[in-house]
């Protein structure tokens, strides 16, 4: 009984300390993050600050014409046989970053975000230095382009999604994925080389990443990360992928952990029995 009482005292002291240095300290240190998340109600997949897209139904065929006229001088669309106009190195040197191929962009980007982005990239991305200029298109032209983009877009997942959504600036070198844009060009364009994302899930955690990707300026004011308008489905898919690559042995860890704990339980039983036997005659 006395032994258990001592254990209880130790457990209480350790418990209070643990509570203080983990949950309490983190809630205080990350207060501004939680406040931002609450203030903007993140993740906000409706991008409510931008408002909805106009209620115009686009025409994909007209959209293709618009695409060739307004977009194809910088962007390719391989799915429809439109190649990128420049090789990545030249493009990066000209724009600071390689312009994305737009084959699948409509599958992972929210529609109203896409509309507002084409209308005014700096406003939608909340990144003033963004390379893409506002093209001065009217709503009908934009909605036609979006209809065209939707017609070519197919759903992509995992590494493919990562490469298309993040891979122009970010790599995941543990997966042998490297950013499309050379590091020195990115440094010039963004002020620093964007972090490698191989184990970013371990460093930041899903809660933070989801909110950050959704509205970077809210969590890290002044960051060079543009808002990219990922929709809910793509965000979740991406989180799953980042989690898998950052912690590839999760299943093994659970399995081995349970076996080891079961083994230790047996050991507790055996050692307790031995102790009882030895101590039987000692008082």
């Amino acid at each position: 009984m006395k032994e258990l009482k001592i254990l209880l005292v130790i457990v209480v002291i350790v418990g209070i300390t643990y509570w203080g240095i983990e949950p309490l300290a983190h809630s205080i240190m990350h207060k501004h993050i939680e406040e931002a998340i609450e203030k903007y109600n993140l993740p906000d997949y409706k991008f409510s600050d931008l408002g909805p897209a106009p209620a115009i139904s686009g025409d994909a065929a007209q959209g293709k014409k618009n695409f060739q006229m307004f977009c194809a001088s910088c962007h390719g669309l391989k799915a429809d046989g439109i190649p990128a106009p420049m090789d990545p190195k030249t493009a990066a040197a000209s724009f600071g970053v390689v312009p994305p191929d737009l084959s699948n962009v409509a599958s992972f980007t929210a529609e109203n975000f896409l509309y507002h982005f084409i209308k005014d990239p700096a406003r939608a991305s909340e990144f003033k230095k963004i390379s893409m200029p506002a093209m001065g298109l009217d709503d009908k032209q934009i909605m036609d382009i979006i209809a065209y983009l939707k017609s070519t877009a197919k759903k992509i997942h995992g590494a493919e999604l990562f490469k298309e959504a993040c891979g122009r600036c970010h790599g995941a070198k543990y997966q042998k994925i490297y950013a499309d844009t050379p590091a020195d060009a990115l440094k010039k364009y963004l002020g620093k080389v964007p972090p490698d994302l191989s184990i970013i899930m371990k460093a930041k955690g899903e809660h933070y990443l989801v909110a950050f990707i959704n509205k970077p300026q809210a969590l890290l004011p002044g960051t060079s990360m543009p808002r990219v308008g990922l929709n809910e489905e793509a965000t979740e898919d991406l989180m799953k992928y980042l989690d898998e690559i950052s912690d590839p042995h999760k299943e093994q860890r659970k399995k081995v952990g349970l076996i080891v704990l079961a083994y230790m339980l047996v050991m507790i039983g055996l050692t307790y029995a031995w102790k009882k036997k030895i101590w039987r005659n000692i008082h």
């Binding site: 860890r253 659970k254 081995v256 952990g257 080891v260 704990l261 230790m264 339980l265 050991m267 507790i268 055996l270 050692t271 307790y272 031995w274 102790k275 036997k277 030895i278 101590w279």
Partner: peptide, 21 residues
């Protein structure tokens, strides 16, 4: 030592819980 082994086992249970979970 017989008591020590028991304490060790309980301790290791806790230790490996932390290691894995």
């Amino acid at each position: 030592i017989s008591k020590e082994f028991f304490v060790m086992s309980v301790f290791l249970f806790f230790f490996f819980y932390l290691v894995f979970f």
